[in-house]
Structures are given as structure tokens and as C-alpha cells.
Amino acid sequence: MSTNASSASSDPSADPLAVLASLPGVAESVDSVRKAVDRVYGHRVMRRRSTEVTSEAALRGARGSAALSGADWALEEVRRRTDFSGDPEARTVGAALRLTAEAGQLLSVWRQSPLRVLARLHLVAAGGAGEDDTAGRPRLPGEPVAEPLIEAPLPRAEEVGGRLDGLAALLVSGSAAPTPVIAAVVHGELLALRPFGSYNGLVARAAERIVLIGGGLDPKSICPAEVGHAEQGRAAYAAAFEGYLSGTPEGMAGWIAHCARSAELGVRESTAVCEALQRGAA
């Protein structure tokens, strides 16, 4: 299956994402996750019960994303609960579940207008959380940002719009970069910008999921990278993100490798689900 977005140009200066794919170790990370995805897609359970695997991957991905945002609930608690309107942790888990459910519905819009999708994702995350008119729009000067785990300096609100426009232009114009590279950059840039007043981490990881699905690596959405991010731990996530923020070749390559490894761990999770379904244990 393809792991490349469409190429808009063979000129490296016009395709900075493709340049990142040439960094040391990135090709190996991309190849490793691609092979892992191909293996799980070839599992015999996928021929008959892929919808069940997709549903389970969505649940586990939402749990993982919420854990990174400070709501580290057991999977069975996430599965059992029906009311997520109470305390902040419950609202975080509810937001993660809503985002995971929404992501697959936005693929066609993402290809044409990533910014519309990001606004929609934040609206979905904020739904039912008592948010005000800040939901669904980039923050304004002076507005606070609540983002667990990420303590990096916050770009000024005046910078956010221009950098979001630049990211969207890159995505719409297309890139020859492998899908895991594009997904990692989208994830990292949204974490760096924290464009909204809340739920930026959840939105960034949902956007990563959209790229992995829409880019052809994981069209059935059965390889939740959020599971891998959570499994590697919050400290490793923050350290890899520091590499992205550094902008150095080593830092960027490390972040891309971390994200690719997270997707690979998501594959492992779904492989275990396939095995459980095959045994009749799930």
C-alpha cells in the first residue's frame, strides 16, 4: 500500500517535507512501520472482522491520547463509562473519544482545507466541556492556553495564523515525503503552536491519525499511533518533542522516529486484538 502523498514538485526547495525524509534513520523508521502495517493488514481476521478491529483501535487510541493529556484511565474504565461531563479527566477522555470518532469523517475536507478540519476538531473536542466562544478558532493575544505536559515556550498568538497557513499550504500542495514523515510534522507543528486555548495535544494527535489514514498507510484506521505514544511514556514523548522544537537534523529525525515507532506499537496493539478475536477471546 502507498505511504506517499502526491508529489507537487521534484524541486527539494519546494518540498521541505521530502527533505526531512532523507535525514539519517528516517527511511529505516518509515520502512519498519510500513512492513508492520502490511503484516497486520494481511492477518486473516482482517478479511472478516476489520470493522471490529477498527472500533477497538479507535477506543484504545482515544485512551492513549487522553493518557498523554493527563487522564490515564484503564481501558475497561473508558469502555464502561457513558458520562464524560464531570471532572476534568472525564472531559479529557470524552474529548479524545469524540475526536477519534470524528477523524475518519474529515478526510476529504482535510485534503482541501486542513485549517477547516483543525477548527472542526477543536469544536468537537470542546463539545460538552463548557467552552465559550474560543472553541474552534485560534487563540487571540492575551488568551491563556491550558496544555498538560507541553511546557515549551508558547509562540505569540500573532505568529500562529501565519504558521498555520504555511503548514496548510504545504499539505494542500502535496509532498513526496512518506506519510509517517508528514504525520509527524503535522503532529509536532500543532504541539509547537498550540493554536487553541485547550485540547491542543488531543487535536494534534487526531490530526496525525487523519494523515496516517488519508495518506494511505492505514486506510482502515487500525494502527493507533496514540497507543504507541502513551506506551513509550510521557517523558519520552516530551523529550522527542524537544527534538522537534530544536529544528536540528538530529532532533527532527528523532521526533519522526518516535512517531513512527508509536505507529508501529499501535500496529502491535491491533495485532493482539486480531489474535484475541481469532481465539474468540474478544
Results as ranks from 00 to 15, higher is better:
89 E>P: 01
119 A>F: 13
105 Q>R: 14
83 D>K: 04
225 A>H: 13
120 R>M: 08
77 E>Q: 06
194 R>T: 08
89 E>F: 02
166 G>E: 06
1 M>F: 09
221 S>L: 05
175 S>P: 11
176 A>V: 14
58 A>W: 07
116 R>A: 13
78 V>W: 01
257 A>W: 07
182 I>Y: 01
31 D>E: 15
249 P>E: 12
166 G>N: 07
2 S>E: 14
268 R>M: 10
22 S>E: 14
13 S>Y: 09
19 V>A: 13
183 A>T: 04
38 D>F: 14
184 A>D: 02
225 A>Q: 09
200 N>R: 11
228 G>I: 10
217 L>G: 13
105 Q>A: 06
77 E>M: 08
147 E>T: 11
17 L>F: 14
99 L>K: 01
53 V>G: 03
81 R>I: 03
143 E>I: 14
180 P>L: 04
109 V>W: 03
180 P>M: 05
255 W>L: 06
188 G>P: 03
41 Y>G: 07
11 D>T: 15
145 V>A: 05
111 R>A: 06
13 S>N: 10
137 R>G: 13
133 D>V: 15
168 A>P: 12
42 G>H: 09
257 A>Q: 14
269 E>I: 06
178 P>A: 12
267 V>L: 09
26 V>L: 09
51 T>L: 13
59 L>E: 01
150 I>R: 01
179 T>R: 11
192 A>R: 09
222 I>S: 01
138 P>H: 10
212 L>D: 03
171 L>A: 04
207 A>C: 10
178 P>Y: 11
82 T>V: 02
29 S>V: 15
241 F>K: 03
119 A>N: 14
126 A>M: 15
238 A>E: 05
248 T>M: 07
35 K>C: 08
157 A>V: 10
38 D>R: 13
2 S>A: 15
44 R>P: 01
234 R>F: 03
226 E>G: 11
50 S>H: 08
185 V>S: 02
78 V>H: 00
204 A>Q: 05
158 E>H: 11
82 T>K: 05
54 T>P: 00
252 M>D: 09
211 V>T: 08
57 A>L: 08
140 L>M: 10
100 T>S: 07
243 G>F: 02
202 L>K: 03
108 S>R: 12
45 V>W: 02
64 G>P: 00
95 A>L: 02
116 R>C: 10
114 P>L: 14
63 R>L: 02
84 F>C: 04
262 S>D: 03
213 I>Y: 02
57 A>K: 04
223 C>K: 10
277 L>T: 05
54 T>C: 09
92 T>F: 07
195 P>Y: 13
26 V>Q: 05
151 E>H: 08
258 H>S: 10
131 E>W: 15
272 A>Q: 12
94 G>W: 02
175 S>E: 07
274 C>N: 11
272 A>F: 12
